[in-house]
Design a protein around this nucleic acid. Sequence first.
DNA 1: AATCCGTGGAA
DNA 2: TTTCCAAGGAT
Length: 355
Amino acid sequence: MPVEPNLRQNVAALLLAHYDRHARSLPWRAPPGSRNLPDPYRVWLSEIMLQQTTVAAVIPYFDKFTTRWPTVAALAAADEAEVMAAWAGLGYYARARNLIACARAVTQDHEGRFPDTEEGLRALPGIGAYTAAAIAAIAFQRRAVVVDANVERVVSRLFALETPLPASRPLIREAADAITPQARAGDFAQAMMDLGSSLCVPRNPQCLLCPLRSCCAAHREGRAEAYPVKAPKKDKPHRLGLVWWLERLDGHVWIERRADTRMLGGMAGLPDSGWDKGIARDAPPVAGEWVVLNRPVEHVFTHFRLTLTVQRLRVPAEAAPESPGQWWPLDRIGEAGLPTLFAKVARAVMKAGDD
DNA sequence: AATCCGTGGAA
DNA sequence: TTTCCAAGGAT
């Protein structure tokens, strides 16, 4: 990857100048012009939430979490079920389990302060190569090479990389290293990500407004949108499953906590069959005249589509399954912390009424 | 190394 | 409607 000596200076200078005028205002960023460094806790929390998740989706969760748990010590002391419920709807629930584990590790093993090096950060649960580099650069002003999907796209275009992703990752990293400045690496990383989300977008990139167009090989070719080249993806299989809505006549529904090792692990859920590959249960939580809802619930996960048949049973107030779980009041079902799949089931049951 | 993990918005 | 995709990590 030959990178002209002055290209590094040019890219960083052009991008940082643009960033100084156009940086987005985000809740986890220090105010523009502020001398204060951003709070590592807030940087960390935002980076975990932003993994594979859009800024718009994250902001309300970030506000909720920082209001409720303003410090890493507060989060470490929080009740696990409350944290999981607060995360409900944001997806990728292993992040929430690792979030708790990481907060506790920082509090117990690091005197309440986040490590200030990539290596130290990388050793914490839920922090991988990207997040370690991002926190080191943004919160601790370290020179780190921060490569996320935005950077992959911007770099692929800057250098017109013909090698398809993911095979091009080593090349991309090398190129990103070459253009990352010694100073302001955190601003540079955020500037690259702002660029990737505003101008250098996947479709219909706004090259005429881009501060890097004079350096960009893809733009020179007139085919920025052709990059990054990607390997073809596999199509999604379709799975079927059953879910059991067990309702008590006094207005409660039976809710269980899902095992950590399952999909939606650690979250509240309804009893279901083993649609997530493998063991759950092949019989309803109690025997009875279960009634099938007319409309199944459709849901799409990252790697498969799911059609969930809903069965409903109403039981007297003294009934209870043998399995672990709890009765949850229907008029507070919104606070049960159900992930979206089961929230959809609840909506479907409510809508079905007494059919 | 390839696969598994959620969700919702945009086009 | 379908497809794509987002500040990735763990195994």
